[in-house]
Amino acid sequence: MEVLQLLVYGVVLGSILTLGAIGVSMIFGILRFAHFAHGDMMTLGAYFGLVFVAGAGISPLAALPLAMGLTAGVAIVVDQTIYRRLRRTQPVILLISSFGIALALRSLIQLVWGPNSEVYRSGIQIPHRVFGLVVKPDHLWIVCGAVGLVVAVHLFLTRTKMGKAMRAMSDNMDLALVTGIPAERVIMGTWVLGGAMAAAAGVFLGMDTRLHPTIGWGVLLPVFAAAILGGIGKPYGAIAGGMVIGIAMELSTLVLEPTYKPAVAFAIMVAMLVVRPSGLFGGRT
């Protein structure tokens, strides 16, 4: 029974990691660098959600689209003012820059909202009991929300011109550019997608526990692990990777202290890098 209960938590965590990993995977695939500010972008999304939840008194789910839009906007601004101008050099310079952006975003969040924990809603939720399993209503919303967003991403990537262009650039950059895909527009689209998904992951993280300026940074490593496990540049791989990492992290609490959950993600990631660096679904290395 305990295992089943942990599986429930694992699916919730996996849903959140998946949303983060989709962005990391696409950015890595198209812009060729590991985006270290992704965790703090999630945090930013969570706090944008808080503005509407606390300010307008709406539910976190209603605030979700607004938080996603604002965070996508911030991602575009950061890209246009900084990353775009560094793109001419080696991709690894972007990596350093994104590390700096991560800390700058976090300190901005601390300046605006303070260093203490916040919650969307105080009070205790009455959990549902399904076949002896404890399921909080928020857990259901998180998983349903994540499934809805993943389906939306799927439709976007397969049915729209922009989505197809993104997949093409991620699969084979040179070939895509030769066919006349407008690279700068696709890159902006990638930031909108990555920023919006990061914000959703952040809001869900905030719903699951509480908001803190380091919540995003805390899951950055599992998010990278999920993206690598699924294969870089493979958004569908990110879903599988997110679920595997999320469930493995929660199941590990049977034998390990909960604080070592990120270490489990790390171990799976390193094992994958040694055995098959292209990931489960043959992404890029």
Binding site: A34, L220, I228, P262
Partner: peptide, 15 residues
Amino acid sequence: RTDYLAIATIGIAEI
């Protein structure tokens, strides 16, 4: 690629 080293080193530092 060195990106993977970056991810691995940040992982080990956090652990």
